[in-house]
Amino acid sequence: MAVDLANPGNFLTTRLRQAINWGRKYSLWPIPYGTACCAIEFMAAVSSYHDLSRYGAELVRFSPRQSDLMIVAGTISYKQAPILKTIYAQMCEPKWVVAMGVCASSGGFYKNYGTLQGIDRVIPTDIYVAGCPPTPENLFHGLLLLQDKIDREGLVASAQRHGEQTG
């Protein structure tokens, strides 16, 4: 974005893509898909000491239809996987997914008959946050990475991603 020097008081010039992405990245509405230990750390990240709202993502919505960022916090079992898929499908485009913690990212140290080995086997995932569980700072780092990613996206990036997924 730049200030128009001829009319410094009245105009900003920018690209449409940048302006929209700027709005999108600083007003993420997360839906926590919390299942386990990571959800407790997510609660700590939202609450007063760490305060997620400093990064513009504090408006936690508990309906997938009102959210554009899904934070999968915790282990996803095979029993849980179809439900995760359904909830993701209920979110409107554009939408992003953060896998918080190693269980959501890869199954972690639960390599066994009950645990899905990473959520990217059922839904497209944008950011993987390491840690078991990640500290709130770790999650914020993941969020900042996601904001960078959103900033670089084209306007139809997530639609394209969706297209790639199905086709």
């Binding site: 095979y78 029993k79 390599k111 066994n112 008959y113 645990t115």
Partner: peptide
């Protein structure tokens, strides 16, 4: 604990620890 489409019994000694079974619908 296991889902309703699960086959076999997981804590028997002859059930392999890593043999996951996917579920189609809740």
């Amino acid at each position: 604990l296991c889902h309703h489409e699960f086959e076999g019994h997981a804590l028997r000694k002859d059930y392999p620890v890593e043999l996951g079974q996917e579920l189609s619908a809740p």
